[in-house]
């Protein structure tokens, strides 16, 4: 038999051990905060000279040409490049993504649903270098041929590849959200004599609208941050793309960072400029994620369905 004193000591030990475990786990969880803070801090710190040095600021913001070899660091063509490519990608992927998501959520049988979802997941897993490679060997020659261009490396090709890459995001999130609309909504609509399509159009989609919006916002964040695949098919030209934009070679921000970071001398003007681009991307995706997150949380509590992200 243990004495009372020993038991008490034992108890104190377990209490202490419990507390230590909790502290350890909390530390692990807080590393996420540490990381996001460090990223914010360091990306920002490396760009401070851009804000202080007026010469560099003018060079970056008002030049119409991106040509680091000639010390021309205008980021306008790069920003334009990103906007064009991402817009193109969303114009293609939103309608296709929504239609297919509706089909998966509303029409497909349970077992088919699983098959489709797994397929989407597999395609989402294809590395972006491979998408770039495929785009390079299959897409760009086709684009060049159809439109009679000397090279298929342009904003159009980049948009298509990017659209394919963000489709899984839109499809899986939207179908998840459409599925989570309570069954009663459908039943009531059917009972009132609405057809399936009328129910989808008038009842389900309006209910799922916030969630779908969040999916599109997240897809936008994905698209604007995508680097390697875009770099391979965009043509990498640092001049201002002219109307109608899509058949010009472009140079999105991410692609420029990937291309020039390796040769940028530490602390030089190119280095600062590239970090400035990084900061822009970071801020955009930060806002995008926070907004999408807020929308999802709100719609989740509204329909109280089990939405998984």
């Amino acid at each position: 038999m243990k004495t009372k004193k020993e038991l008490k000591l034992n108890h104190r030990k377990t209490v202490k051990a419990e507390r230590n475990v909790k502290i350890l786990l909390f530390t692990a969880a807080s590393t996420t905060i540490v990381f996001i803070t460090l990223i914010t801090l360091f990306i920002f710190m490396e760009t401070i000279p851009v804000f202080l040095n007026e010469n560099l600021r003018i060079k970056i913001l008002f030049s119409q040409v991106w040509a680091p070899a000639y010390e021309k660091y205008g980021i306008l063509p790069l920003i334009m490049g990103s906007i064009i490519v991402v817009t193109g990608a969303l114009v293609i992927s939103i309608p296709v993504g929504l239609c297919t998501a509706i089909y998966i959520a509303e029409e497909a049988s349970e077992s088919l649903k699983d098959v489709f979802k797994s397929a989407i997941e597999m395609f989402a897993a294809i590395p972006s270098v491979i998408y770039g490679f495929i785009g390079l060997v299959t897409l760009t020659p086709i684009v060049a041929k159809i439109f009679g261009l000397s090279s298929g490396k342009n904003a159009f090709s980049a948009s298509i590849i990017l659209a394919i890459m963000v489709l899984p995001t839109i499809m899986s999130l939207s179908s998840e959200i459409i599925s989570s609309v309570p069954k009663e909504y459908r039943e009531v609509s059917f009972a009132l004599g609405a057809s399936k399509w009328q129910t989808i159009k008038n009842v389900i989609l309006p209910t799922a609208k916030p969630g779908i919006l969040a999916a599109i916002i997240l897809a936008f964040g994905r698209a604007i941050g995508e680097t390697v695949a875009v770099l391979m098919v965009c043509g990498a030209a640092g001049s201002m793309p002219g109307f109608p934009f899509f058949f010009d070679a472009v140079f999105p921000m991410t692609a420029a960072i990937a291309m020039y970071m390796g040769e940028a001398p530490m602390g030089g003007e190119l280095y600062r400029t590239l970090f400035f681009l990084g900061l822009i991307l970071f801020i955009i995706t930060f806002i995008v994620n926070t907004v999408a997150d807020a929308i999802l949380k709100k719609s989740k509590s509204a329909t109280s369905g089990g939405i998984e992200i």
Binding site: F35, G225, T227, N289
Partner: peptide, 20 residues
Amino acid sequence: QAINNLAGVPSIVTGLFGYT
């Protein structure tokens, strides 16, 4: 919030951070 934001940071930006 930090986890969601980390998930959204473009990999090229994570790369920039890793570099500095």
